[in-house]
């Protein structure tokens, strides 16, 4: 299964990214060389996860785990198999926060202890493509729980034009990815969120964002 995942990224995702899409990456040197780390990006498209994974060398593949909602990705058997084995998601239960005493981020913290690189989308869902919706605070809680783990803000633009929510037709577009400076968790949840949001706005302001209405 590991081989299948490797083959999928080497033979499908990378060529597609190289030919049909095109990534303009800024700040490559700020990407973590080894785990543990959390990549916190905005979310426009299913392609976001695949593109972020493909930024890393193939040998790092087993270490890179996109955090994804259990209720969406495990809802049917094929999707569950694909998401778990090929994409390598780390499923979390979005509803469990409501339950008494359950920590929905437990699996994430365990993965970070193992030295994995997590991909997290603080917006929660893809929402309106290419428009930032509010960030959820889970990322701040995770950072507070693992204060030594760097959180790397990443701003992405363009993949929502190529494959927005609700569409199955891929239209070639270049995309921009800007990697920001790492942040570390702190006691004050809202202070962390303010820093994260400010960094994301700063990264976005560096880019030319064509109008897409």
């Amino acid at each position: 299964m590991k081989l299948l995942r490797l083959a999928f990224f080497a033979l499908v995702i990378r060529p597609v990214l190289l030919i049909l899409l095109g990534v303009n990456l800024r700040g490559r040197e700020k990407l973590p060389i080894s785990g543990p780390a959390v990549l916190a990006a905005n979310h426009n498209s299913h392609l976001d996860t695949l593109t972020l994974i493909a930024l890393f060398p193939l040998r790092d593949l087993p270490r890179i785990r996109p955090v994804a909602a259990m209720d969406y990705f495990l809802k049917n058997r094929f999707l569950a198999w694909f998401a778990t084995n090929i994409i390598g998601i780390l499923p979390i239960d979005r509803q469990s926060g409501a339950k008494e005493g359950a920590n929905p981020l437990e699996a994430c913290e365990e993965a970070l202890v193992r030295g994995d690189i997590l991909i997290l989308f603080p917006e929660g869902s893809r929402g309106e493509p290419e428009r930032l919706s509010g960030f959820k605070k889970g990322i701040a809680h995770l950072a507070r729980g693992c204060p030594d783990v760097p959180v790397i803000p990443i701003f992405m633009y363009g993949l929502g034009r190529a494959l927005p929510k609700g569409s199955f037709i891929l239209v070639p577009f270049n995309c921009d990815i800007v990697v920001g400076d790492e942040l570390y968790g702190e006691e004050d949840i809202s202070a962390f969120m303010t820093r994260y949001e400010a960094e994301m706005k700063h990264l976005a302001s560096d880019l030319h964002l064509p109008v897409w209405e």
Binding site: G22, R161, I169, P172, F173, C175, H208, P210, W212, E213
Partner: peptide
């Protein structure tokens, strides 16, 4: 030529409704 066209479409403002037109 394809790469040049893709670069052009990525730079200019396009309408959401025209995704398939670009195809």
């Amino acid at each position: 030529s394809f790469l040049a066209l893709k670069e052009y479409f990525s730079l200019i403002p396009t309408r959401r409704i025209d995704r398939e037109v670009l195809l």
